[in-house]
Design a protein around this nucleic acid. Structure first.
Lengths: 144, 144
DNA sequence: CCTTGAACCTCTAGTTACTAGAGGATGTAG
DNA sequence: CTACATCCTCTAGTAACTAGAGGTTCAAGG
């Protein structure tokens, strides 16, 4: 019922991206018409919508693949991923706010056209704003 | 004073990534010792810390390059850059806040722990939860 | 019915921001 | 002075697209 272009328009996912998702097996291979063009239905649309939303929330494709698999056979816990993402987003919000305030201050200060003191680096470089010990996340891999 | 490995350990940025940042000109070329190995100081460390935090906030390297330039020459006329970055950061904050709320709702609805009653897929697939009109963002580019 | 142009097809290559590995030189601890 | 960790350069691989070439199919107007 839906051409790839229509599907793209309805979901906001670009045409080449849809084909890419098919290629990597995130979307099932759709049927084709006489001329070999892809035809989609509402199921594909829902699935693609889900993928788009999840991507916007910062889920990597592998997590999405996992969630889709889970929804296909729902017997496992799956909110752990969402919780992890929630913590991550919260973490980002804190630091983005700090940078925002510093930029705001700079803009307010430099109406004359120059910036006297720029503390952008300090604001983000400051270890006090590190939420957690990054050693735990970015661990132990020195070189190779 | 600092070997690349020490710098890596202190900042949480992997050794090959540090070399990569140098290669693309985000970090200045450091001095070398007799044997040709890189030696760093605390300035490099601050700069690298800044880069790491900004990257974690999702800034592309080109924006970071601009922010670094801003802090390098605070006497230049650069409020235009600061203002543009401010707008960018503001936009990010708005979006991130929206995503945060959506995730929060997801997690709240998903305390059961199993997909049977977990609505992650539905919540994300639901069109009613679109943050904004995606047509405006993901616009008009059908194919090429 | 025929043309024309938009939308489709496959395939390859480019992008960003890394990451991994080969193959070899250097630095340091016992 | 010998191991062996860490360093060096270089090339190639990864994720998640994006762009382009070169060609086919569909649908609207004449």
């Amino acid at each position: 019922m839906l051409s790839i272009g229509k599907l793209s328009g309805l979901t906001g996912v670009k045409v080449p991206t849809i084909r890419y998702y098919e290629q990597i097996g995130l979307l099932p291979k759709p049927e084709r018409n006489e001329g070999g063009q892809r035809i989609y239905n509402n199921t594909s649309r829902e699935r693609l919508n889900f993928i788009r939303h999840a991507r916007e929330l910062g889920f990597p494709l592998e997590d999405i693949r996992e969630l889709l698999a889970l929804s296909d056979s729902p017997d496992q816990s799956c909110d752990a991923i969402a919780k992890r993402q929630l913590a991550e987003v919260e973490h980002r919000l804190v630091r983005l706010n700090a940078l925002y305030k510093e930029l705001e201050r700079m803009v307010a200060q430099c109406t004359c056209g120059t910036v006297q003191t720029c503390r952008v680096i300090q604001v983000l470089g400051d270890h006090g704003l590190c939420v957690a010990d990054h050693q735990k996340i970015m661990s132990h891999d020195i070189d190779q």
